[in-house]
C-alpha cells in the first residue's frame, strides 16, 4: 500500500510538471495580452508532432528534436500574435474566437500531415530510476520533471531579475502606463507569446514518447490547463504552478484508486467550487478579467 502511494505520488509529480509548463504559458499570455488562448492545447500537440516528424521519422537525436520543436512552436506563437491577437486587440471576444479558429486549423493540418491514427514513437530510454522494487521513476519522465524545474526557474529569473521581465510584468499590470514609460507593448506581447507557446511546445515534445500522440490530444490538455489557471487565479504564475501540483495529485490519485472519468469530474467540480467561493482563484488578483 505504501509503495502504491509512493508510486502514485511520483506519477503525480510527473503530471504536475507538464501541466504547469502548459498552464504557466497560458497564464503568461493571458496576463500580458488579456486573451484566452484556446489553441494552447494544440500548441502542445504541435510540439508532440515535432517529435514524431523529427525524432521518429527522421531519426534526429531526441534532444535536438525537442529544441527544434520548442522553437517551432514558439514561432507558431509569434504567428498567432502577429496574425490574430494584435489586430483583434480591441475586441475582447475576438481573440478567443480567432484562437478557436486557429485550433481547428492546427488540428486539421495534423490530420492531413500525419493521419488520425495514434503515432508510435520509439522510447527514448528504457532506464528506470529504482527507489525500491516496486517504486520507480522512468528516466523519460524524469526529463519532463527536470525540464519543468529548469524552464520555470529560468522564467522566474527572467521575469523578476531582467529588464525585459520587468517590462513584461509592467505591461501585464497596466499596458497604458507601461507604454508611457517607453515600453513597446507590441514587443512585450511578442515575447510573452513566444515564451508561452514555447513552454507548451516543450511540454508536448518531451511527453510525446510517453503519451498517445494524436491530432485531438490537445483537448484534454486545454481542459486541464483551464482548471488549473482558474483554481490558481487567472493571471497568477505562482498560483498556476501550485494549482498544477494540487490538481495533478488529486487527479492522479483519483485515477489510480477509482477511475479516470471520475477524476475528471472531481477536477471540474473543484474548479466550479473555486469559481463559486472565490472567483479570483486561490492566489489571484482579478486585474485583467
Amino acid at each position: 500500500m505504501l509503495e502504491l502511494l509512493a508510486q502514485t505520488g511520483l506519477n503525480a509529480v510527473y503530471a504536475a510538471s507538464y501541466i504547469s509548463l502548459v498552464a504557466v504559458g497560458l497564464v503568461l499570455i493571458f496576463g500580458v495580452m488579456g486573451v484566452v488562448n484556446f489553441a494552447h492545447g494544440e500548441l502542445f500537440m504541435a510540439g508532440a508532432y515535432a517529435i514524431v516528424a523529427l525524432y521518429a521519422d527522421m531519426n534526429v537525436p531526441f534532444f535536438i528534436a525537442v529544441a527544434v520543436g520548442m522553437a517551432f512552436v514558439g514561432c507558431l506563437g509569434l504567428l498567432m500574435e502577429w496574425a490574430l491577437f494584435r489586430p483583434l486587440k480591441d475586441n475582447p471576444l475576438g481573440g478567443l474566437v480567432a484562437s478557436i479558429g486557429f485550433l481547428m486549423i492546427l488540428q486539421s493540418l495534423a490530420v492531413m500531415g500525419f493521419g488520425v491514427r495514434m503515432e508510435h514513437i520509439p522510447p527514448v530510454t528504457q532506464e528506470v530510476v529504482r527507489f525500491t522494487d516496486k517504486v520507480g521513476l522512468p528516466v523519460a519522465r524524469l526529463y519532463v520533471i527536470v525540464a519543468a524545474i529548469v524552464f520555470l526557474s529560468a522564467l522566474w529569473y527572467f521575469l523578476k531579475r531582467t529588464r525585459f521581465g520587468w517590462a513584461l510584468r509592467a505591461s501585464a499590470q497596466d499596458p497604458e502606463a507601461a507604454a508611457l514609460q517607453g515600453i513597446s507593448i507590441t514587443q512585450t506581447a511578442r515575447i510573452a507569446m513566444f515564451i508561452g507557446a514555447a513552454l507548451a511546445g516543450v511540454a508536448g515534445a518531451l511527453t510525446a514518447p510517453l503519451v498517445s500522440v494524436n491530432p485531438h490530444m490537445g483537448h484534454s490538455v486545454i481542459v486541464t490547463a483551464f482548471i488549473v489557471i482558474i483554481v490558481g487565479g487567472v493571471g497568477s504564475l505562482e498560483g498556476a504552478i501550485l494549482a498544477s501540483i494540487a490538481y495533478a495529485f488529486v487527479h492522479t490519485f483519483v485515477t489510480t484508486f477509482w477511475d479516470g472519468v471520475l477524476a475528471d469530474i472531481v477536477g471540474l467540480s473543484l474548479m466550479l467550487i473555486v469559481l463559486i467561493v472565490k472567483p479570483t482563484g486561490l492566489f489571484g488578483s482579478a486585474d485583467r478579467a
Binding site: L88, A98, I100, G101, M104, I105, Q107, S108, L109
Partner: peptide
C-alpha cells in the same frame, strides 16, 4: 472532407478579422 475543419477555422478567423 479532410480539409473541412481547416477551411471552417479559416472562415472563423477571417470573419472575426474583417467582419467583426
Amino acid at each position: 472532407e479532410q480539409a473541412r475543419p481547416l477551411i471552417y477555422g479559416a472562415i472563423m478567423i477571417l470573419s472575426i478579422l474583417f467582419l467583426p
